[in-house]
Lab assay of single mutants.
Amino acid sequence: GATAVSEWTEYKTADGKTYYYNNRTLESTFEKPQELK
Rank of each mutant, 00 (worst) to 15 (best):
K17W: 05
E7V: 07
E7G: 08
W8K: 00
F30G: 04
L36V: 09
Y19A: 09
Y11A: 08
T9H: 09
T29Y: 05
K37D: 14
F30T: 10
A14Y: 03
S6L: 09
V5K: 13
E31P: 02
T3D: 14
T3P: 13
K17L: 11
E7L: 07
A4W: 05
S28E: 08
T9V: 15
N22Q: 01
A2I: 14
T13F: 03
P33Y: 02
G16H: 02
G16D: 04
K32P: 10
L36N: 08
K32M: 14
S6G: 13
L36I: 10
T13H: 04
K17M: 08
E7P: 07
Y19N: 03
Q34I: 14
E35W: 06
K12I: 12
S28G: 09
K37M: 15
E35S: 10
K32E: 08
L36F: 10
L36W: 05
A4L: 12
L36H: 09
P33N: 02
T18S: 11
F30Y: 09
F30N: 06
F30S: 09
T18F: 07
N23H: 14
N22F: 01
E27N: 03
S28M: 15
S28A: 13
E10C: 12
T3H: 13
T13L: 05
R24V: 15
L36M: 10
Y21N: 02
L36Q: 07
P33D: 02
T18E: 05
N23L: 09
P33T: 02
A2Q: 13
G16I: 00
W8Y: 02
L26V: 03
Y20M: 00
T25D: 01
S28N: 05
A4V: 13
Y21W: 08
E7W: 07
Q34M: 12
R24N: 10
T9N: 08
D15M: 03
E35I: 06
T18Q: 04
E10Y: 03
N23D: 07
L36R: 07
R24S: 11
A14I: 11
S6H: 09
F30L: 06
P33V: 03
E35Y: 07
T18R: 05
Y19M: 10
A2L: 12
N22W: 00
P33L: 02
Y21I: 11
S6R: 09
P33I: 03
F30V: 08
E31W: 04
F30A: 06
G1S: 15
D15E: 10
T18A: 06
K32D: 04
G16R: 01
A4I: 12
